[in-house]
Nucleic acid binder design. Sequence first.
DNA 1: GGGGTTAGTAAGCGCTTGCTTAGTCTCTCC
DNA 2: GGAGAGACTAAGCAAGCGCTTACTAACCCC
Lengths: 194, 194
Amino acid sequence: MGDTALRLMEAAADAFSDKGFHATTTRDIASRAGLSPAGVYVHFASKEELLFALSERGHEAARDMLVAAASTAVSPSEGLAAILETFSRWHAEHYRVGRIVQYEFGHLTPEHREVVLRLRKEIDGVVRSVLDTGVAAGEFEVDDVQATTLALMSMCVDVARWYTPGIRRTPEEIGASNARLGLRLVGARRPARG
Amino acid sequence: MGDTALRLMEAAADAFSDKGFHATTTRDIASRAGLSPAGVYVHFASKEELLFALSERGHEAARDMLVAAASTAVSPSEGLAAILETFSRWHAEHYRVGRIVQYEFGHLTPEHREVVLRLRKEIDGVVRSVLDTGVAAGEFEVDDVQATTLALMSMCVDVARWYTPGIRRTPEEIGASNARLGLRLVGARRPARG
DNA sequence: GGGGTTAGTAAGCGCTTGCTTAGTCTCTCC
DNA sequence: GGAGAGACTAAGCAAGCGCTTACTAACCCC
C-alpha cells in the first residue's frame, strides 16, 4: 500500500464520516488528497473499493486489538474488562472509521459485505467466548449469553455515534467506565484486577 | 396531515432506511407512494423536509412513550425497567425509523437539527431523572450518572442497528431482557416489580 | 355556475455524478 | 539513450439528480 493510496484512504475516511458515503463525491476525496479527480482511479477501481478498504482494515484492526486484549488476561473478569475497555476506547479514538464501518455497511457490494460479516463474527466470537468461560467458571451470572453479548457490544460500538473530541471524558475514561459497567452487567463475582 | 402525505412518509421511511437519505431519489419515493415524481412537492417542499418530518415525529413518539412509561411507575426501579423495556421495544418495532433518526441526522439542515436536538435532550432528561431519583433514594448505586445514562441509552438505541424481523427474539423479549440487564447495570437493590 | 383552491401530471432544465480516455511526465533498467 | 512502466492530469461523456414549470381535473363555497 503506497503513500498516495494511504492519503486517499485518510481523505475518504474524513469525507465519508463527515457527509456519508453517497453524499461524498470522488472529486471531494481527490482534492482532499491533493489529486485531480481522475487520480483516485489509479489506486482504487471505484468509490466502493475505497469504502471497502476502509471497512475491512477497520474491522481487522478492531479484531486484532480485542484478541490481544483477551489473550493477556488471566481470568474471565479480567479478560472481559480488557475487551470492553479496548473496544470502547477504540470506538472513541477512531470514531470516524467506526461510523463509516457501522453506518455505511449497506453501501458495500454483496461480496464485500460477506467479507465484513465474517470479520464481525470473529469479533463477536471473542466477546462471547469470554462470557462462556466466565459462566462455566461460575464467575459470571448470565441468563442469555447471546443477548448479553449484544448488549455489551452495543455499549462499546455506540460510542462512535456520540463521541466527539473535546467531550467531557477522554477515550481512556470512557473505556474504563464501560469496563466497570460491563462487569456489573454480567454479575461478575470478583473484581477484574487485584 | 392528509392521507397522501402519510403515504409519502411511509414510502420515504422505507426508502431512506433501505438505502440511506442521499442514495434515495425523489423519484423512488414518489413511485413507492404511487405518484409521479412531481407529486412529492405538492406535500413537501424538499426531500430534506420529508426527512425532518420523519425524524421529528419519530422523536416525539419515542419521547411520549418514555414519559408515559416513567409516569406509571411507583419506584425508580420500576420506572427504569419500564423505560428500558419501552425504549428497546420501540427501537425494535420501529427499527426503520430508528435508523433514519440516528444515521441520517447529519443530513438535516442546521435549523432542523436544533429542533431534533431539543427533543433528544428531553428524552435524555427522562432517563437521567429516574437515575437521579433512584440514587437519591439509595435504590441505585451509580458512580457517574451521565456516563451510566449514556450506556443505558446505547443499549436501547443500538437495537435499531442490529434488529431485523424474524430474528431469534421478539421486540417484547428484547425489551424485557434489556430492562433486566439495565437494572443490574445501575446496581438496583430491589427487583422492579413485587 | 363560475371563481378559487387543492392534488396531481408530463416534460424537462440546469447541474452534478462516477468514471473513462488520451495523453504527459518521470523514473528505472539494460 | 531509448524502451517501458507507473503515476498523474485535462477534458469530457452518459446518466441521473432535485426540483420547476405549465398545465389539467376535481372539488368547495357562495
